[in-house]
Design a protein around this nucleic acid. Structure first.
Lengths: 369, 369
DNA sequence: CTGAAAGCGCTTACAG
DNA sequence: CTGAAAGCGCTTACAG
C-alpha cells in the first residue's frame, strides 16, 4: 500500500473536522480520549482516527502547550565539568551521564515527553536557565543529572520548578532524589569477595571532584561492613586515601598499586575495592608492572561497569549502578512531582536508594592466601 | 537590591501593556525589534523594557511558536549504538559525541535555539521521529551527529526537514554535511612526523563500525601522501590492516604492537599513525610489554584528542577534529538551511571540510634511526 | 453523544 | 510612531 505523500505542513484538526463532517470539539475529544468514561460513538471514533491517519495528522505542539499549559518537555540539566576538567565543552561525553540520559530519554519518550538539553556554564546559570525555561512554559520539570550542587536542587524548589536529582553524590538539604545505594554497593562487593574466600580486603579512595560517586559514604560503609563481618581490613596495611597531590583515578590507582606491591606478602591485601573502573584499570596495569597479576595475585573490583570493563583483559568485575532503574525511578518521581504541582498539591520530597549489582567477570578469583 | 519574588506564572504581554498603558502590538514590537528601521520612540522602548524587567516577563514559547511558525528548537539526532555496542542505552556517553553536542548546544543557545534530544532505536525510526517532530512544529531542523546513515540524511531531505550531517564518516548521496577533512588530517600528522625526521612511518587501520572516523579515506590519503613525499611506508613492513577477527581499537592496537615488535630493527617503523586514541594507547602499552618504549623507540600519534590523551604518560600527541569549529559550522549551515526553507527557496547542499589540528605532546620525538 | 464558543499568549499586516 | 483586530491550532467547560 502506498503511503500518501505527506505534505510538509501536516493536517490540522480543522482538516479532520472537514473531512469527517464532525466538529472540532468532537475530533479533539476523540484524539485525546483519556478517560474511558468519555463516551463517544464507536463510529465517530473510527471515522476520526481513519481521517487522522489518512491525512497524516500531527498535533501542533506549540498550540497544545498553549491550550493545556503543559509542554510535554523535560529539561535535562547537565552541569558543567563533572569530572573537574577544565574543558570548555559540556560533560555530555561522560559515559555515565550518557547512559543516564539515554535511559531517561527512553523512559520519557514512552510517556510522551521529550528531553531538552539544559547545559550551563555554572550551576547558578543552570538554575536561572531551568527556571526561565520552566516559567516560559517550555519545560514541565527538570531532571538534574551529574554533579548537581545541593544548592541547585534547593533553588529550583524555591522557584517552584519540579525537579529531581539523579544519583547525586552529596548531602541533600531538600528536594527529591533517586540514586545508587552507595552503602549497599559496598556490601555487594564485599559479599562477592567474601564468597571467593577473601579476608584481607582493601578499599581505595581518591581525590578530585566526582560526578556521582560518594566516596566518603562508600569508605565509611566499607569500614563498618568489614567490622561487621569480622574481616581484617587490607586498608590498614596501606593508606587507602592518597595524598592530596595524587589527583584523579589513574594516578590514585597507580599509586595504590605501588603501595601494595611494596608490602610484604602477608600484609598485602588479596583483593581491592576501587571507586571507579578507570582506577581499577590503573591498579591492574601498574600491579602488572610490579610483576603482580590480576586476578592471580590480587583480585580487583571496579565500579560503574563502563564499556572498557567488558573489553579489557582481564575483563573487569565491577559494581553497576543500575542506571536504567535509577533513571526510570527518577523519571517516575519527576512525573509525580509535576502532577502534584499541577493539581496544586505539595509534593513531599522523595529519597530513593537503588541497589547496586555486581557484574562478575575475570578480575576477581578465589583467594589463594 | 532585592529582586522581586517571581511568581511561578510569569507576566504576559498583556500585563506589560497594562502596566505601561501601551497596546499589545507596541509592546510586542518593542520586545522583538530586530530591524533597526522599525522606529519606536525612545521613551516607549524604555518603558516597555523596564516593565518587562520589573514583572519578570518571559514569552510563552508555545504561543510564540504558534504565532510565528517556528519553534526555536533544534533536534539533535543521535543514532543508536555508534560504536557497534549491543547496549540498549543511547550513545550519548561517547566523549566524541558529547563534545560535539556540547559545542552545538552552546552555538545554538547563543542564537536563541535549544536542543531537543532525538534518540531512536534505529535510523528508520530516527527519520520517522525527526520528521514527525518537525511537522508537529516542535523542531525547526535536525542536526545529525554520529554514525548517521547516508540514507537518513536523504530521507529527511525528501521529507522536507532541514538537516545537516555532522562529521559523518561515509559516502553521502545528498544533503549538507560539515566534517573533518580526513585527508588533510593525515597530512597534518605526516607533516609533524616528518619534521621530527621520521621517514619510515606506518598507518594502522581497524575494523568495527566507527562513529566518525572514515578509516578507508584516511588509509588512502596516507598512501598517497607518503608517495607524494617520497617516504618509505612503514606500513609495507607490517600489515596495517588487522585480520577481520581483530575487532576494535584495543585489540588492533595490541596486535599492531606485536607485529612491530617482531620486525627486525631496520624494517621497523619509527612512527605510527593510529586511527583513534584508544588504539594509540593500546599500541604504546603493548610495545612497552615488548620492551619498546614510546617515544624513545617508536613515536605514536593518536586521533581525537580524547581526555585521557592529556593525562596519560607519555601524554599522547594526537590529531584533533576541531569539534568546536565543526559543530559551529554545521550549526550555521543548518540555520541557513532553515532560513532558506522558510523563505521558500531551495537550499543547495553544502559540503564543508574542517581542517584537523595536531596537538603535540610527548608520544612523538625525533627519529633516532 | 456532539457542537458553538471562548480562550491560551503571542505576532503581524493593516490603518491611522 | 502606535493601536485594533485577526489569526496561529488546539482544548475545554458549557449547553444541548
Amino acid at each position: 500500500m502506498s503511503r500518501p505523500k505527506l505534505s510538509p505542513v501536516p493536517a490540522k484538526l480543522a482538516d479532520i473536522a472537514a473531512a469527517t463532517g464532525l466538529s472540532l470539539s468532537t475530533v479533539s475529544r476523540v484524539l485525546n480520549r483519556r478517560k474511558l468514561h468519555e463516551r463517544l460513538s464507536r463510529k465517530t471514533t473510527e471515522r476520526v482516527h481513519a481521517a487522522a491517519r489518512r491525512l497524516g495528522y500531527l498535533p501542533h505542539h506549540g498550540a497544545q502547550a498553549l491550550a493545556t499549559n503543559r509542554s510535554l518537555v523535560i529539561g535535562a540539566a547537565v552541569p558543567p565539568n563533572p569530572v573537574g576538567r577544565k574543558e570548555e565543552s559540556s560533560p555530555l561525553g561522560d559515559e555515565y551521564l550518557g547512559k543516564l540520559l539515554g535511559h531517561a530519554e527512553v523512559f520519557f519518550r514512552a510517556r510522551g515527553f521529550d528531553l531538552l538539553l539544559l547545559n550551563a556554564a555554572d550551576s547558578k546559570s543552570l538554575c536561572a536557565r531551568s527556571a526561565a525555561k520552566f516559567r516560559a512554559r517550555q519545560i514541565d520539570g527538570v531532571l538534574l543529572a551529574g554533579n548537581t550542587s545541593a544548592l541547585t536542587l534547593r533553588t529550583l524548589e524555591l522557584e517552584g520548578v519540579p525537579a529531581v536529582a539523579v544519583d547525586y553524590a552529596g548531602p541533600l538539604a531538600a528536594g527529591s532524589h533517586v540514586g545508587l545505594d552507595n552503602r549497599g554497593a559496598i556490601a555487594v562487593g564485599l559479599d562477592h569477595l567474601q564468597s571467593l574466600g577473601h579476608r584481607r580486603i582493601a578499599f581505595l579512595g581518591r581525590h578530585g571532584r566526582t560526578v556521582y560517586a560518594d566516596i566518603a559514604v562508600r569508605r565509611r560503609a566499607f569500614r563498618e561492613e568489614m567490622a561487621r563481618r569480622g574481616l581484617a581490613s587490607g586498608s590498614s596495611s596501606f593508606a587507602d586515601w592518597p595524598a592530596p597531590e595524587i589527583q584523579g583515578s589513574q594516578e590514585s590507582g597507580a599509586w595504590a598499586a605501588d603501595q601494595i606491591a611494596a608490602l610484604p606478602l602477608r600484609r598485602r591485601p588479596t583483593a581491592i575495592l576501587t571507586v571507579d573502573d578507570v582506577q581499577a584499570f590503573a591498579v591492574v596495569q601498574r600491579l602488572r608492572e610490579h610483576g603482580l597479576f590480576c586476578p592471580l595475585d590480587v583480585s580487583v573490583v571496579g565500579f560503574d561497569d563502563s564499556s572498557p570493563a567488558r573489553l579489557s583483559s582481564p575483563a573487569l568485575t565491577t559494581i553497576d549502578h543500575g542506571l536504567q532503574v535509577i533513571a526510570e525511578r527518577a523519571g517516575a518521581v519527576l512525573l509525580e512531582c509535576i502532577e502534584h504541582r499541577r493539581e496544586g498539591k505539595v509534593f513531599p520530597p522523595v529519597r530513593e536508594k537503588i541497589p547496586a549489582r555486581l557484574i562478575r567477570r575475570e578480575s576477581t578469583a578465589r583467594a589463594i592466601r
